[in-house]
Design a protein around this nucleic acid. Sequence first.
DNA 1: CTGAAAGCGCTAACAT
DNA 2: ATGTTAGCGCTTTCAG
Lengths: 341, 341
Amino acid sequence: MKSKPVTLSDIAKILNVSTVTVSKALRNHPDISPETTKKIKKLAEELEYTPNLIARSLSARRSNTIGVIVPKIAHFFFSSIIENIYKIGLENNYEIILAVSQEDAELERKHIHTLLAMKVDGIIVSITQQTTNYDIFETVIKRGIPIVFIDRVPYLSNISTVTVDDRGGAFKAVEHAIKMGYKKIAHFAGYTNINIGKERLQGFKDAMEKYGLEINPDWVIEGGFGEDYGYNAFMKLYRENNLPEFILTVTFPVALGVYKAVKELGLRIPEDIDLICFGNSNIQEFLCPPLSCIDQSTTLLSQNAMEILFENIQKQEEFEPRNITIETNLVLRGTCTRKHT
Amino acid sequence: MKSKPVTLSDIAKILNVSTVTVSKALRNHPDISPETTKKIKKLAEELEYTPNLIARSLSARRSNTIGVIVPKIAHFFFSSIIENIYKIGLENNYEIILAVSQEDAELERKHIHTLLAMKVDGIIVSITQQTTNYDIFETVIKRGIPIVFIDRVPYLSNISTVTVDDRGGAFKAVEHAIKMGYKKIAHFAGYTNINIGKERLQGFKDAMEKYGLEINPDWVIEGGFGEDYGYNAFMKLYRENNLPEFILTVTFPVALGVYKAVKELGLRIPEDIDLICFGNSNIQEFLCPPLSCIDQSTTLLSQNAMEILFENIQKQEEFEPRNITIETNLVLRGTCTRKHT
DNA sequence: CTGAAAGCGCTAACAT
DNA sequence: ATGTTAGCGCTTTCAG
């Protein structure tokens, strides 16, 4: 019934050559004469030969496989990065092994172990919001497995990173809000133990300071990168009757949470509360009103990360870690565009 | 520098036992005495032993790996399904190998070959909008690799499928529109060579027929499942001055395309044109106006698919293909809710 | 309870 | 140009 897959040696036997010859022929090795190669390929095709990549990996000591770990997947930012990584992987003949940490540091750790066990040739990771112990990453590095961090990166020296100019982006946005006339500005800051949170907060502070505005500590709220957090943070402020005029949210989902709260409360954007978020998405323009944002190019992020990773895989020992920062772009739509008086 | 990974035999040598003993101990095989097991585990931990999954797979002839192929990833429907599949995979100790076909049948074919070559234990696939040649799937089946199709499935008998009640869902939606008073109803139908397109179109027809409404062929437009198609289809109708009152779109992205066109043209939803789409998403409620939809549970879809796949993997020869249909759910928000007169 | 033998399917190094 | 040898790291018999 379930016919066993054809192997190199099956082909070899039929053609009365050695498995090595078949192996080489199938990989277009110049050792083998054109005729034999053709003959072998023809038979392989007929027999529907599929190489056993597992065996190949074990023997060749490379898997042609790249591990990717992200905290979430059903969010535009990450799914877009993933899509790009898959595309680039395909072009370069690498298979991608994706793992989702679900913002859980323990799970992230487990995934890294699995990727190591699967002998991936390299790893790309965007760490969880709660990753504070970096041991596992040092293990990876110690083992000589190329790794590059993307967007959310650990505070570690001598690692390759591709990040966004979070500080500059946040600054730009808040500066623009201030120029629109806003003074009571809040920041829903996510978690500031992680680089993106910390840097965005810093950009917020920079702008406030530059324009001599006071930072109200009640308006700098930490708590996460998701919709729930945005919702709760806004609700809290509302209940305390302590609403600002403007909010910079640390991510798009957080802004969505604000939209939800605002809608439930019967308030209006931007009349009662205006906002902008970090991170672009294809559907922001369809929101009510269209949400402005600080755009971070997921394409550039992925491209650079993959490029560095490939370089690292090739050079191995001689490779020097690289750190790239991607510039941001203010995208103005229906929010953060109205003169406030 | 780059220390070679610790292997079973490294541990075996140090402890003066055989690799077999170590192998068994590490997998809690009852053969090995508790003391030896403990001793071995302790050393393995100290040495940071990581099993080589490649070697294990080759030897054990199962990879504990499941291949998944979807046409897109940066779309809520698929990224949500993927997220669910990853979760279930994790719980059952299976690694997921995800491949993206990018709606390209040729690429899909290539991915299947790769998954076969990687010796995945099973495959889940949602086919591309242009897949018409099913040979590759028959190859998979012939090789005895468990495969289950999800949402978009080929017309093949004796395969396992998990689909949505597309016909019933479309019917419900159009029926509701009719009860709201709409008569001039269009359907942006995607591609009807594939089951989801065909069934949804049929549901549309069923409803029109039941209520004695005439189907205007100009208003049944095919072309794809993406935003561009929705945009173009609407623009075409507008230019021809042939706008319907109501549209059922085959997917959410298509509806987004309509929103975009409507906005550009300065029209209003639902006053000038009302609509509903097939497929839910977490951001529809934030659209302007909030978009109603026919909800298809991605959770049920994924759960059932994985369950069937696991069953197939376990039973192998004795397994009988199963076909499951998930019920849909009309979710009414800001569209398709206004009485039309 | 433990281990020796054999092999999974492939490739790299070294003959011939 | 082709083949032989050896081995990747692990697991599955099967003997002791």
